[in-house]
Amino acid sequence: MTDVASRNRGLLVFRGRAGDRNELAMHGAELLGAELSQRLDLAPVRVGEPEPPLHADWATELAAALPALREMSGAFDGVLRDGLVPVTALTRCAVALATLPVLARHRPDTCVVWFDAHADCNTPETSPTGYLGGLVLAGACGMWDTGLGGELRTENVILGGAREIDPGEQRLIDDEVVRAVPVGRDLAARVREAVAGRPVYFHLDCDVLDPGIAPTEYRVPGGLSLNDLHAVAGVLAEHEVVGLEIAEFQGVWAPGGEPVSPVDLVDALRPLLGC
């Protein structure tokens, strides 16, 4: 076992624009980054600045986000070049357009375990909504040109907990282009089987959790409990952990509300973090 705690780490906090439809996750990433900083005794590297949402199509959103995403690619590349394990607080899933191709360049053997209520495997042509966040894995795998790279191999992607899946995404699952591990009994054991001993990089979108556990934009019934998440983290910690990223923690239940602590969320990840 090589958990995150057994190696030197680099803490990144992304605060910029990434297809946001509100500003809440920009502040949520700061809260999460502060908690991780305290737990890991690390000073975070902050990337990007909060900006108002555009409410635009994916192409406009991507063009606006590219400066911060390229900065993120560079920071993430620097962490890996230094031999560190990246621990990253993201705003939205779309920021993984910047992290996953870099990961694949450094560690093409790594399995990306993507826990999200959504499959995020649409292309601009197959997406019913044109939402940038729903195009992430397809972009990172080179199914469309993001301008940030597409080196991730589909056979190295495991979808965990996805339950709102569009028709084009379902075809990829049915055709075994990507593997899905649904929520349900023995989830952690099924994740272990899917990983099959490979090094792992864990992406957590907080909407994979059951609604009411963490403040998120999407609230999709039938999600994970914190106990489920803790069990999955324990299984992943049996492997070489190349890094982890946490996205879509909005920080408040509603605009103008009191900040929500990420302590319980981070506690559930303790097998990976060792803190």
Rank of each mutant, 00 (worst) to 15 (best):
T154F: 07
W144M: 10
A119R: 08
D120F: 14
L159A: 12
A140Q: 07
A162L: 02
H106V: 01
S127N: 04
G134F: 10
P124N: 00
T126E: 14
G161P: 06
T154G: 07
D116E: 08
C141A: 15
D145L: 09
A140H: 06
E151H: 14
F115W: 09
T146E: 08
L159C: 12
P124F: 01
T126C: 09
G161D: 01
L132Q: 08
T123Y: 06
R153K: 06
T146H: 05
L152F: 01
C141S: 15
N122D: 15
D120K: 12
N122V: 09
P128S: 05
Y131Q: 13
H106L: 08
R163F: 14
G149R: 11
V157N: 09
L137K: 01
V112K: 15
C141K: 11
L159K: 14
M143D: 14
G160Q: 03
P128E: 05
P128D: 03
G147I: 11
E155F: 05
G139C: 06
T146R: 03
E155S: 15
T146I: 14
P124I: 05
G133A: 14
V112F: 09
C111G: 06
A117C: 01
C111T: 12
D116H: 12
W144Q: 11
A162F: 00
V157I: 09
A140V: 03
R153S: 03
G139K: 09
A119V: 11
M143I: 05
G147M: 10
W144N: 11
G147V: 06
G130P: 09
L137W: 02
V113A: 09
L132W: 03
G161Q: 03
V113G: 11
G139S: 04
A119Y: 10
